[in-house]
Amino acid sequence: MTEKGKDMKGRIFDIKRYSIHDGPGIRTTVFLKGCGLHCLWCHNPESIAPGPDLMHWPARCVRCYSCVRACPPGAIAKDAAGAVVIDRAKCDLCGRCAEACLYDSMQIVGREMSVAEVLAEAEKDRIFYEQSGGGVTLSGGDPLVQPGFAGALLDACRARGFHTALDTAGLAPAEAFERLARRADLVLFDLKSVDEARHMELTGVSNAAILDNLRRLAVAGPETWIRIPLVRGVNDGQENIGRTIELLASLGRIRRIGLLPYHAGGLDKAVRIGQGQHFRRFEAPTEERLAAIEAAFRGAGFDVRRGG
């Protein structure tokens, strides 16, 4: 790795150690900020914007108003009932409120880190990777949004002998996608819906480039596992599942499928970053339906499991 690569900075919103569902073995998952999709059920809504977000936890607030006093642009105020309110239009995400708040009621999500800093964090769990056949997973958001940083990080991890995985929604120009995917040992490819109109409606973008990238990956890319978030009445129907199986079977090299039933954990987070209005509450498929979907994939010869 060049010195330049080492100093390259990216925006990270979380690093999670002991990830056991993001690829083989015990892994460290690095969550990169920014995503090209806007799925209505997103369980990490704070990952979507490429820049930082201010997260507010009213339940932790003790109404000391140190945040109000600390805010240079005056974006934070108390309302008539004494609660702390944020005028997000005025907020410039300087983070002074988060420094002032002793109760973690205000937090800045998304900090800049260099490749070297992330690597140092990943290095801490080397013994677990070696023992378990694990490594480092880049997730997000979608690492494709920060391709330079993600690429440098993948290269650096590989240079250290860590197994690498790229968790992506696959939305990028073909060349850019290939350039990044090639640098990982494993791609975890998220597939929301094979129906283009539905995809557009639910995620805000067409799936044409995504499916194109998937096909390309199947021809010449690294090992690929497919991950399908399953949302009741949205993409768990017979038709979508049937067409998905058809597509994946036609790709030949794909074997492993992870089914990720919807959970509502993202909604609270959306509210905390002031984005509640842009997301919706859904339901997970029924247990019966999940079992049927599993059986359908298994019947088509796939290695299917729940949760990655």
């Binding site: 056991i20 073995g25 013994i127 694990g134």
Partner: peptide
């Protein structure tokens, strides 16, 4: 994965 993770934690 959970059980295998636990096993690898112990071994490590």
């Amino acid at each position: 994965a959970g059980l295998k993770g636990l096993k690898d934690l112990v071994r490590s």
